[in-house]
């Protein structure tokens, strides 16, 4: 009902607005920056893909401090860019304000929900993808010990960790999971040396599969696992080709396709506001299987993961979302 209403509203908007059909996308990266090897970069990839396919350029801005959230959104909105996509939950409050001031401009936000008719909220079920790679890690582990290296101790990363733990325990309830965070400042996303050190420490305690959710810091952890001839799991984008034979799989979060299709919808006049929750079912998250990891990811493991995937989609397995109540049952 609500969706229908929104679609109708959108249709009216397009009919009355001359440049609405003329898509001129803008993207506002979060403080992490465009090249964070993580979701900001994934957003960048989505915009680049759109530019390549359609020849329509886009505008971008990298936030330097929180006071700029409002400013950047308004600057783009005032110049009539749309859709304007804000990356990261930190921009939610600013977007709530600005989307009301510019009801005719269409906005998007990744990783947060803003309840306004002209905002498309793109939220991912990271816990579902993490559950699957947690299972794969537990299936691969010979020592019964696995590791997790997070960037910063914030709810988003705990959400990854919580899904991972649930998946691993579903396979082996006695499994031991080491969890470490790289740091307490924004630098935590960009410190491969520290990421590597944490991974080495976990490896020396007996872990043989390490999952990272730490932006560029994770690259260090994956290097450490490759050096020790152990396994690692990449995150956000497909990182299987970094160390073939050592990267077990990657938990991909398709920010790029979400943004690409947002722009495409705008171009084709199919834009809708409202929340889009992208989980396994919507192919918003998942694990990778390609020529780089075919030697380490066995058919047996894959079939077990796919079985769980089907059950999660059907609702038979419920993966707890850490951010729903800020706690993890495990």
């Amino acid at each position: 009902m609500r969706v229908k209403w929104l679609a109708a509203a959108a249709a009216v908007l397009f009919a009355g607005n001359a440049y609405a059909a003329e898509v001129s996308p803008a993207v506002i990266y979060d403080i992490g920056g465009k090249h964070d090897k993580s979701f900001n970069e994934s957003a960048f990839a989505g915009e680049e893909q759109f530019k390549k396919d359609t020849g329509i350029g886009y505008h971008e801005f990298e936030i330097q401090n929180p006071s700029q959230y409002d400013q950047a959104l308004r600057n783009f909105a005032r110049r009539g860019y749309q859709p304007i996509i804000a990356i990261g939950f930190s921009q939610a409050q600013a977007l709530e304000k600005v989307s009301k001031e510019f009801p005719k401009i269409q906005f998007g936000i990744v990783d947060a929900t803003v309840d306004a008719p002209n905002v498309r909220s793109l939220v991912f079920r990271e816990e579902e993808g993490s559950y699957l790679v947690g299972m794969l890690a537990a299936l691969k582990s010979e020592t019964g010990k696995i590791g997790f290296v997070g960037g910063m101790d914030i709810p988003l990363i705990r959400k990854f960790a919580c899904g991972y733990v649930q998946g691993a325990k579903a396979v082996n309830p006695k499994i031991e999971i080491f969890q470490n965070m790289v740091g307490t400042t924004g630098d935590a996303w960009n410190d491969p040396v520290k990421g590597g050190e944490l991974a080495k420490s976990q490896l020396s305690r007996g872990a043989d599969v390490i999952y990272t959710a730490a932006g560029a810091s994770g690259l260090g952890a994956m290097q450490a696992a490759a050096d020790a001839k152990k396994y690692s799991i990449g995150v956000d984008s497909n990182q299987d080709d970094l160390h073939p034979g050592s990267v077990l799989t990657s938990m991909v979060k398709h920010v790029d396709t979400a943004i690409y299709s947002a722009n495409m919808d705008m171009k084709d006049g199919k834009w809708t506001g409202g929340a889009k929750v992208l989980g396994l079912k919507e192919n918003g998250v998942g694990y990778t299987s390609d020529q780089y990891n075919k030697d380490v990811l066995t058919a047996d493991m894959k079939s077990k993961a796919d079985e769980a995937k089907a059950k999660i989609i059907s609702g038979e397995i419920k993966v707890h979302d850490y951010t729903a109540d800020n706690s993890c049952p495990m």
Binding site: F89, S90, Q93, M152, I154, L156, T184, N326
Partner: peptide, 19 residues
């Protein structure tokens, strides 16, 4: 930094939000 992250993530945060 460490103190503030700990306080914000564990105590100040509003339930159900990421921020």
């Amino acid at each position: 930094n460490a103190l503030m992250v700990w306080l914000l993530v564990n105590y100040f945060i509003q339930p159900g939000t990421m921020d």
